[in-house]
Structure formats: structure tokens, C-alpha cells
Amino acid sequence: MARLGIGLQLYTLRDDMEKDMEGTLRYVAELGYEGVEFAGYYGMPAEKLKQLLDELGLKAIGSHVSLASLTDNLQGEIDYLKTLGAQYIICPYVMPEQRETSEQWEEIISRCEGFAAEAKKQGLQFLYHNHDFEFHLKIKDEFVFDAMYANTGDKAINVEMDVCWVQFAGQDPLAYIAKYAGRLPLVHFKDFSKDEEGKIITLELGLGQVDLKMVIEAAEKAGAEWLVVEQDHCQKPPLTSVANSLNWVKENYTGVRQ
């Protein structure tokens, strides 16, 4: 089994990125993260960002791109990622008003299959990143989550599985990782607990309910390429939280680059 790369979803550091993108990326590299997944480029031209990443030794894994931008500017998004040398273009979220019915989901899946086919033509992979709501509705007796990945071939949407949200939805992330072996290049590596109302609280790695060590083992067996650390909302300064989470990885994953 190949070792997993350790990346960071920069949405965790969105406020720091907006204030000082270059300084934030330098900090991420100094911590020891090997790659980054973007959630916006904060006005930096692709060529300049590529030069910075090369200087820092950071791999551009891919980027979360809104459904609106995928629809309105797919070629521009693909061109930017190709300049960075990234491989993955990822739909991260579907707005509530767009996902109220199975018919709406069928239309979204069809659109995403079109994005996937075009991305494949141009040497990229199109992935979909889940939350919990893909397990709240079914299409023809299967969860929307599974319907999203039902097609194979040129129109195949591949998987960026957020294990935190899978578990929060009441499903088994280990079983789902195994189910999508070979189609799961990226695993969002995230921990959580619940508040008194049952709402999610995302935590630094090792402080919550996810069996992260078993996730690592399952991800390796499934042929995943990257564990992508993410924390939606941090209880400490986000720069501290991403450092603490990486320290957990270093202490608990023998494959990590020291």
C-alpha cells in the first residue's frame, strides 16, 4: 500500500488566507503539510501561486469550486488548476434550496456528470465532497450519496469522502471507504462531537468521535492518495488548530513524512 500524503483544506484558514495568503501558505509549509486544497484563490493569478507553491514545496492537490462557478466558468476553473499542476476539481456543497427534492438532485447529478466528462477530457478528475444531507434523501431506493457515484466510465463522478459528515449522518465511514475503493483519491480527515442539541462541533484531530486510526488504515487499503485535514470551525485560533491536528497525524500515522 502506498503511503498517504497529508494535505490541508485551506477553508479552515479562510480568514488568515484572506488577510495574508502568502504568509499563511508559508506557515502551512513550515508546519510540514505536504499539499493544500484550495477554497478560493483570493485574487492571486495562477502563475504567481504556482511559483509560490513550488518555492514552498507544497503540492496543489485540487480546489473546491462552487456549483455556480462550475456552471458559469468551468473552463476558467480547469485552466487555473492545470496551471497549478493540480489534479482534482471538486464540488464542495449544494445550497439548501437546490436540494429539496429527488428531482433536483437528479438534475444536479446530471450536471456534475457533464463536468466530470469535460474534466476527464482535459486531464483532471471531478470529485464530489459530501456533507450529511446526501443521506437524508433517496433516489430510487438509494441514498443521494450513492446515486451521485452510480455512473462509471467517462461520466464518472469520483469521491472526496468527508468521514466526519458520513459518521454524523449515522453511517459507517469505514464501510463507505471500502465501498468506494479505487474511486476515492481524497479523504477529508476530520473529527467532531455534538452539542446538547445534537448539532455538529468540528474538532482538532483526536478530540472527537471518529476512529481516525481505523480511517487511515481503511483509506490506505482503498487506494486513497491524500488525507486532507479540515476543521470547519475552530475553537482555538485556526493556525493553532491546524498545527495541533498535524501533530496528531505525526504521532499516530507511521507513514507521515517527518
Rank of each mutant, 00 (worst) to 15 (best):
M1A: 14
A2V: 13
L4E: 13
G5I: 08
Q9W: 15
Q9D: 11
L10F: 07
R14Q: 11
K19F: 04
K19L: 11
L25N: 06
Y27V: 03
E30T: 10
Y33K: 02
V36M: 04
E37P: 06
F38N: 10
F38H: 13
M44L: 10
K50G: 04
K50Q: 14
L52K: 11
L52C: 05
E55A: 07
L58D: 04
L67I: 11
L74T: 09
I78N: 03
D79T: 11
L81C: 11
T83D: 12
L84D: 09
A86L: 12
Y88V: 08
I90K: 09
C91K: 08
P92T: 12
E100M: 12
E103T: 12
W105T: 14
W105D: 12
E107L: 10
G114N: 07
A116Y: 01
G123Q: 01
L124W: 03
Q125K: 13
F126H: 09
N130F: 06
E134P: 05
F135P: 04
I139E: 02
D146P: 03
Y149L: 05
Y149S: 00
A150K: 15
T152F: 02
T152S: 09
T152G: 11
G153C: 04
D154I: 06
I157D: 04
N158Y: 08
W165H: 13
W165V: 13
Q167P: 01
F168S: 01
G170A: 00
D172T: 02
P173G: 07
P173V: 06
I177M: 00
H188V: 13
D191Q: 05
F192T: 03
E196G: 06
I201K: 13
E204H: 11
L207R: 14
G208L: 09
V210A: 10
M214K: 13
A218I: 08
A218Q: 10
E220P: 05
K221H: 10
W226R: 04
E230D: 10
E230L: 10
V242W: 15
A243P: 00
N244F: 12
N247Y: 14
W248F: 14
Q258Y: 04
Q258T: 01
